[in-house]
Amino acid sequence: MLDDFMLRAALAGIGVALAAAPLGCFVVWRRMAYFGDATAHAAILGVALSLLLSTSIFAGVLVVSLLMAILVSLLSGRGYAMDTLLGVMAHSALAFGLVAVSFVSGVRIDLMAYLFGDILAVGKGDLVLIAGGALLVMALVGWRWSSLLTATLDADLARANGIHPGREQLVLTLSLAVVVAVALKVVGVLLIAALLIIPAAAARPFCRTPEAMVLVAAVIGAASTSGGLQAAYWLDTPTGPTIVSLAAVVFVLCSLVDIGRRRLARMSSSDISS
């Protein structure tokens, strides 16, 4: 049944969306968007190194993204202007990665696949990796859920409860590297951060609890990946960018609904007072 490439692609997309949802929410809550970017962009360096060393792309990306994420974590909170520093690191990682890839002969044609993803080429082996990665991330975040939330609200509040905010940050860092590694095939390094942030941001107006936001983000993410896949098939457009475009359209619609709802609430409350 997994012989159909469209089915494999759809499953891969849903797997990545499920892993990205809880993590994406934390990226939004903790204002780590640029952090996600830097980690994702470093993945191209991982691709180059794996090709040079003839190792598995997945492993290379995982290691390099993890190193990048740890480096950024270490540098944060040491008096650097974080957005500047992350901007430098995100784009340098991308540039160095692209330069490194050019040293590897014969992959120039494949570069687009790494930058924008190649979901239609997902094989059974990739599917196993994606499923494993998604399960790992969901288990990690689920296990640390309460501590992560407390540390996100306030570091000292967490410490007073015996939680180490640094250790929780490490859980997120590790999960981020795993998501980058599994999402590479689906949307590519340039658009991974979008898959993290957009569904979470679109879900925000409709949720009263963090758990609800993760759930809604997962639904929006899964709908965007499967919908984008179909749209790309009909329109003959690149799949990764189509998926992200669809997610962006959903985000705009959600924002419009939210704005309309607020207007209505304000109008009805001014009716009452007048």
């Binding site: 501590s147 939330l149 306030d154 509040l157 007073a160 609890t209 936001m213």
Partner: peptide, 24 residues
């Protein structure tokens, strides 16, 4: 029991009072 100076909660994080009191 610790009460910090203030709680700077990010507007993107939906959280009811009850859910907050159930953390961690």
């Amino acid at each position: 029991g610790y009460v910090p100076q203030r709680l700077a909660i990010d507007p993107t994080l939906p959280m009811t009072v009850t859910r907050f009191l159930n953390l961690p």
